[in-house]
Amino acid sequence: MTKEATLEPELSHPMEELLRMDRIPHIWCPTCGLGTVVTAFASAIQKLEIGLDDIAVVSGIGCTGRVAGYVKIDSFHTTHGRAIPFATGLHLANPKLKTVVISGDGDLISIGGNHFIHAARRNIDLTVICVNNFIYAMTGGQVAPTTPLTANASTMPYGNFEQPFSIPYLADSCGAVYVARWSALHVRRLVTAIAEAIAKPGFSVVEVISPCSTLYSRRNRLGTGLDLMRFYHDNCEIKHGADTRELEIKFQEKITVGKFIDRDRPTFVQSMNNWYGKVFGDEYEPYEGAVE
């Protein structure tokens, strides 16, 4: 039988061009939300029609940290908490490159929290996609700075008593210019938000509420990833422009999603060029990157 005559369809992934197919199957659990996040990110790149040589992704460590290994663009899997400083270096060396950080809530908000707040303050032109599964998933479900009060974690076996951070509120108060929150269920809106965030000059943050079926869900008896998706369906409330002080996520209660912040502020490089242009006048050559 010739190839054309076979009844078996030629299987290929519609996003093959954007994925490292030689690394598939990935390591993530069934019904984990991370696959959706990768798809949303790849769709946003396609939507923006960015050249695949003009965008880079940087991840830290964790289940989410593995994203960098599966996307077929320049991709960096760095150390725990240090995705933002690594990305800052990459961006400053080549500001023309769109630099996107994709990492977990623990990575970005706990060990990397200081980098997050200062990159927002300095308005470094980065897009941060923070996958919030409310837990340190890769290492066995330890409490994260995003774990809702009373939720169970391996290091909070009687329930969490630590006040969590609200990522949008944190990002807003530190000066991020674009802040949105969606869940892994809101695929189309998530794609739009990621595309907007990438297109936006300055520090933009997209929080993705994402099911961790294996750890967060199991420890808290919330069912499979699919059950969590159903929960998002029934409990996410879209409220664009919501006051970020009111975005706290309580255990198994309503989750406010939407685009909360979209404002303009000079980026780090713009501020530097503006300022030195003032101080040194024509003698100053505006910085446009170190790569010819």
């Binding site: 040589d53 960098a68 077929k72 991709s75 960096f76 080549n94």
Partner: peptide
Amino acid sequence: VRAGDGYRFHTTGLTHDERGYP
């Protein structure tokens, strides 16, 4: 190579092979 030069490479702090893959 440099990011942006069109090689679309991957690098990691994990033990890796010649492709840079874990």
